[in-house]
Amino acid sequence: MMKWIPVALVLVLSACSGTPQTVYYQLAAAGSSVAASSQNVFRPVWVEHVSVPDYLAGNGVVYQSNDVQFVIAANNQWASPLDQQLQQTLVSNLSAALPGVLVSSTLMGEQHDTLNVSVMGFHGRYDGHVVVSGAWTLEHDGKLTRQPFAFDLAQNEDGYDALVITLAKGWQQVVGQVANAVIHQH
């Protein structure tokens, strides 16, 4: 009986050491700005909603393993729901890109522009690229501007850290599109 104890102990320890650790990711906010003239008076921008499809709405970071298959990572997860992270970084990055413009996810009175974003792709791909795609709609004075976006960025390194960094860069490009639209609306 005693000779089985070391074997059992080795099995238990090896099982514990083989358990993958869960890693949580948060999108980083960028600190760039677009040349917005301080002479123009900009209305506040209300970021009403950012939506994601069901396959992106879970906790796991998504990776496309071939043309038809998507893998939702079990141990590489978003620190908070992806739609919330996208909305928070959109507000933060738009605020940085448009100094002097109040950008908020909270409704701010009657005079504001309204922004809605529908994200359709926000994942890594088997060929080493990252997909950030969807469309945004900006309402200004009753006029709607709808702009699709589809960014395909090369991921410089392997791994989920590099994937999330590249996704954030793609999201920053969406922010640049929206910031330019806000400037040209006024």
Results as ranks from 00 to 15, higher is better:
V117K: 05
E110P: 00
P81E: 13
S80V: 15
V117A: 05
V103Y: 02
S118K: 13
T106C: 01
Q69V: 14
A79N: 09
S65I: 15
D67M: 10
E110D: 14
S104K: 06
Q64G: 05
L102C: 01
A73K: 07
T89I: 07
M108V: 15
V117D: 01
S104A: 08
N75T: 15
A74V: 13
S104L: 09
N76A: 08
P99V: 10
L82E: 04
A74T: 15
Q88V: 08
V117F: 09
V117Y: 09
A79C: 02
M108H: 10
Q111V: 14
S65L: 10
D67G: 13
Y63P: 03
S95G: 09
S65Q: 15
L82A: 04
L98A: 01
S118Y: 04
S95H: 05
M108Q: 14
Q85H: 04
D67E: 13
L82Y: 01
L94P: 00
Q84Y: 04
F70G: 00
S118G: 08
A74E: 15
E110A: 10
Q77W: 07
Q87R: 14
V119H: 06
Y63K: 06
L94V: 06
W78S: 01
A73L: 10
V117S: 04
V119F: 05
S118I: 10
P81N: 12
V103D: 01
Q77F: 05
S105C: 03
S80N: 05
T114Q: 12
S105E: 12
P81C: 08
I72M: 14
N66T: 07
D113M: 15
L98D: 03
Q87V: 00
S104H: 04
T114D: 03
L82G: 01
A73H: 09
V103I: 15
Q85R: 03
Q69E: 14
S92Y: 01
V101D: 03
Q69N: 13
A74I: 12
S118C: 03
L94M: 08
M108A: 13
H112N: 13
N93G: 03
S95R: 07
Q64D: 05
V71G: 00
Q84L: 08
L98W: 07
T89P: 00
N75K: 11
Q77N: 11
L102K: 14
L107S: 11
N66V: 10
V68L: 12
N116T: 15
D67I: 08
N93H: 02
V91R: 05
Q88I: 03
F70A: 06
V71D: 08
S80Y: 06
V103H: 03
N66R: 10
A73Q: 10
P81G: 09
S80H: 04
S105H: 08
Q84D: 06
P99C: 07
L86N: 02
Q88C: 00
S104I: 07
G109W: 12
N93E: 11
Q87L: 10
E110T: 13
L98P: 00
V68M: 11
E110Q: 14
Q69Y: 09
Q88D: 11
T89H: 03
S80A: 14
N66G: 09
V119A: 06
Q64S: 06
V103T: 03
T89Y: 02
D113H: 13
F70C: 02
N76S: 10
Q111P: 01
H112K: 14
E110W: 07
Q85S: 00
V91F: 05
